[in-house]
Design a protein around this nucleic acid. Sequence first.
RNA 1: GGCCCUAUCGUCUAACGGUUAGGACACAGGCUUUUCAAGCCUGGAACCAGGGUUCGAUUCCCUGUAGGGUCACCA
Length: 447
Amino acid sequence: MNIITRFPPSPTGYLHIGRARTALFNFLFARHHGGKMVFRIEDTDKERSKKEYEQDIIDSLSWMNISHDDGPYRQSERNAVYKKYIEKLIKDGCAYVSKEIPEAGEEEKKRSEVIRFRNPNKKIEFEDLIRGKIEFDTTELGDFVIARSIDEPLYHLTVVIDDFEMKVTHIIRGDDGISNTPRQILIQEGIGAPRPVYAHLPLILAKDKSKLSGRHGAVSVMEYRNDGFMPEALTNYLALLGWNPGTDKEIFTMEELIKEFSIEKIQKSGAIFDLEKLRWFNREYLMKLDDKQFTDMAIPYLPEWLRGTSAEWQRMLPLVRDKVHTFRDVAMLFQEKGDLHFTAGNPAYPSSLLLWKKEPDAMAAKAHLEHVRTLLGDLDEASFAPETIKDTLWAYAEEKGRGNVLWPLRVALTGQEKSPDPFISAAILGKEETLKRIDNAISIISK
RNA sequence: GGCCCUAUCGUCUAACGGUUAGGACACAGGCUUUUCAAGCCUGGAACCAGGGUUCGAUUCCCUGUAGGGUCACCA
């Protein structure tokens, strides 16, 4: 059997991670079985659909490397198709034009005439790949509306027609679609379409266990991109939310996911989205980058005001890689309390900070700084790198006590309680600035 | 409220009747160390409750409880 799945977003909002995961699962399932995924934009609601959202959805999927094999189709361009089916449904007696009697207090928007499906009022039973047998009594649905008019079809109708015409074999969608299923099966039977296989995914939940939505903070894929996450990390994390390979392996490339994916391993219950774990995944992927890749990818996240020359960053950023989980974290390093804030300008700090807590001797600290200054002054500009600087100072630091020498130096250079080590800090500042700051510290401590 | 779905550490999960209930994130402690991270090591932490079925239930069944989803002329 040739498997065809589909991803049918409606462009009424930015693509959020829940829908992105649904797209991912449809994609993985199709690819795993050598099938295809249809991409269809459900924009029958002209009021709420926007081109901007449509573009966001396309860009988000492309960023995550989730591709389709058919489409994109736009329902707004397929009215002739739907019209044909509506006419046939009416002719066959499965649907009818209904005169609506406006009830007191009802919305004014409502039409006086709509098209309703003639509900056979029977029990529907279907087999869900994830949940097993599910039963509904459709009587409670009544004769539901399938179109506002012959030219204005509604969701349930268009979905069923399109899935049929696009030969969709497997419908993998969110849990919240379960209650739509009986209605859609009824329409399928009305138009004589075969029943596809259903698989309802557990929802992605917010911390409070409710359905994840905009009010829970960052939910759109693009927000995660803007926050400095790598698409591989997001994809990997999302794949493991509600699915597992049955082994302890957690890091997967897209190829590996396609190879390992199976619907039987999908979880039944909802999963809470955990930003901390996503950050952990992102760090794992960050570590796989080489220095140049890391820097090139991080630079766009730096605020305009602190972007220096590319060469400067190529030199600096690799030195602080192990301090971050995301590219946004890199930018954070330069802010007020960040580890690299000292690069912004001459730091101000109380002279007492220069003293090492285990041996707070001002005279000794001054002497150490003076000696370090001499040693570093002898280094030439070109060899002012962390390793060389360390080699130059290490013997002296060992002799006098590492904390006694290195703590004052680090504070002299950064003025911060937390920062990279003094060798890295000196290398970042460069020889001239390093000596300047040491001189400054010596004068402060002398007062 | 009706209908539907779900239930293992705080979180994501493994277990397909017999295990000291495993792993990961997070957390705690330790090591390393000039600070902060990172890294390494160690540790605490779970089968929703009650009935069955069975020699034996986390696992199968029922009930309860809890949580969630859905009830449009939106998708």
